[in-house]
Design a protein around this nucleic acid. Structure first.
Length: 485
RNA sequence: GGCCUCGUGGCGGAAUGGCUACGCAGAGGACUGCAAAUCCUUGUAUGGGGGUUCGAUUCCCUCCGAGGCCUCCA
């Protein structure tokens, strides 16, 4: 079997490179997960979806049992402390509750669970071990209950973000704590007051800095070096730069991860998303409220809208784009009516598109092409359908595929449409609608148009729009329908 | 100020040293008892100026424009 060549853009080298796993029986990827202090917003969803697709692609290429995906949960952080105090609840309650919602949100977006979702608070021992190694090696020092990383001790610090060390020192403008040896040194450990969460350590009771968590968790679950490290582009500096510094200096390797991947940012309707602009929107709100565009959106629509833009490009999150994505999904659902899920296999072009630095847009284009081919009366539409199913599995439309309408199941189709429209239309009596549709089809076949039009009007009043068709093979009259907004 | 992206048709958005995908919208046609839907066909684009080249949207320079990071925000 020939494994298609996977090429990924590596921020370290600023170029696309052929991906060669350290161990192709154990391909390892780490992605920075959420800090669980509040609902995840739609920008947070981007890396989750993007790297979910990469995870699925890697599993396809290397085998399900040969890929390990780790996405952490940051459950210790000063923002968490502040938020818990604000709301008058315990830190534990806040992080547990927030994480639960995050998991639900992400599942609704069609993302697989990573193999491991480690929590920062459960890796304090590993953090302490790394800090001790760093201190022994002269890359870190303790001062006034803090542990700091000595940035000047690392000759090629700044390689990922391409910031020369000397310039950074010259340009530092943050007020410098007196215990820092160099302006650039960053915190690995800091002391906690009695009312702050803290753990015992050789340097007293304290809590970890942000960056050390990821070094500890990736080490524990993936080893000293691994294949892919992902996250948002804003994490390049300082977070990922500092992770690299910690892990490389602690373990003495030239690299921490071989490939560093970063997704671009998201804007909302052409503007930066921010609470002050009032365009801040969470995944939960998109899924369950009418805050964005006056309606709620199915997870699969959000997912497709996200994948229509290459992950490194900035993406503009608009109502129009969501509507377009929904239209596409409806079209796919129609074309795949009655399609079988067994023996589904993605087309070669599709895998080639994804293998080119995760070009999800080109991959979606390939699905469109298969859709067109499946419409053609000549040829083998069922093969094209099967390939479409295979493609959709890889980009994570499992739930969508599970709910494909049967060729002749009246109510399942109506039910699906209703779930898309949301609660307001849910008052429709499915059984009655099904009976009416059947009766109307009979009347129409008998050319009793007065009766059939009357029923059609009744159904429209209920919000059900009929669409007549003729079976291309048998010439038999048929009817499909959708729920109108 | 430093570093880094990006400017492709009405909109979204890929790719490429030679013919610029795909989707949406638009237009035309077919089908249909009518409506809706569906099917077929189709117009329209590489920000400005230089350079390299037989040839540039693609490579280089420059100008204009948009955005990001440098502030524990994906």
């Amino acid at each position: 079997m020939t494994t298609p060549q996977l090429r990924l853009y590596n921020t370290l080298t600023r170029s696309k490179e052929v991906f060669v796993p350290i161990d192709e029986k154990n391909v390892r990827m780490y992605v920075c997960g959420p800090t669980v202090y509040d609902f995840a917003h739609i920008g947070n969803a981007r890396p989750v979806i993007v790297f979910d697709v990469l995870y699925r692609l890697l599993r396809h290429l290397y085998g399900k049992d040969h890929v390990k995906y780790v996405r952490n949960i940051t459950d210790v952080d000063d923002k968490i402390n502040a938020r818990a105090a604000e709301r008058g609840i315990s830190i534990r309650d806040l992080t547990e509750g927030t994480n639960r919602i995050f998991q639900e949100d992400v599942k609704a977006l069609g993302c697989l669970e990573p193999d491991v979702q480690p929590r920062a608070t459960e890796h304090i021992a590993e953090m302490i071990a790394i800090m001790q190694k760093l201190i022994e090696a002269g890359h870190a020092y303790a001062a006034e209950g803090h542990v700091l990383f000595a940035v000047p001790s690392m000759a090629d610090y700044g390689r990922l973000s391409r910031r020369p060390l000397d310039e950074m020192i010259a340009g530092a403008r943050v007020e410098v704590a007196p215990y820092k040896r160099s302006d650039m040194d960053f915190v690995l450990w800091k002391p906690s007051r009695d009312n702050e969460p803290g753990w015992d350590s050789p340097w007293g009771r304290g809590r970890p800095g942000w960056h050390i968590e990821c070094s500890a968790m990736s080490w524990k679950h993936l080893g000293e070096t691994f294949d892919i490290h992902g996250g948002g582009i804003d994490l390049v500096f300082p977070h990922h730069e500092n992770e690299i510094a910690q892990s490389r200096c602690a373990f003495g390797h030239d690299v921490m991860a071989n490939v560093w991947m970063h997704n671009g940012f998201l804007q909302v309707e052409g503007e930066k998303m921010s609470k002050s602009l009032g365009n801040f929107v969470t995944i939960n709100e998109l899924l369950h409220t009418d805050k964005f565009g006056g309606r709620s959106w199915p997870g699969e629509v959000l997912r497709l809208a996200m994948l229509k833009t290459h992950y490194r490009q900035p993406i503009d999150w608009t109502v129009k784009a969501l509507e377009e994505a929904e239209k596409t999904i409806k079209e796919w659902r129609r074309l795949l009516r009655g399609a079988s899920r067994s023996n589904a296999k993605p087309s070669e072009n599709f895998i080639a598109a994804l293998s080119d630095d995760l070009n999800t847009h080109a991959a979606v284009t390939e699905i469109h092409k298969l859709a067109v081919a499946s419409k053609s009366p000549s040829g083998e539409p069922y093969d094209r359908q099967t390939e479409m199913v295979g493609c959709l599995e890889i980009i994570g439309f499992d739930e969508f595929l599970k709910e494909l309408p049967d060729q002749d199941d009246v109510t399942s189709d109506i039910r699906k449409s209703i779930s898309e429209v949301g609660a307001p239309k849910a008052g429709i009596d499915l059984k009655k609608a099904g009976q009416l549709i059947t009766a109307r089809l009979e009347a129409r076949k008998a050319k009793n148009f007065a009766e059939s039009d009357r029923i059609r009007d009744d159904l429209l009043a209920m919000g059900i729009q009929l669409k007549d068709a003729k079976d291309p093979v048998t010439g038999e009259l048929t009817t499909t329908w959708e729920v109108k907004r």
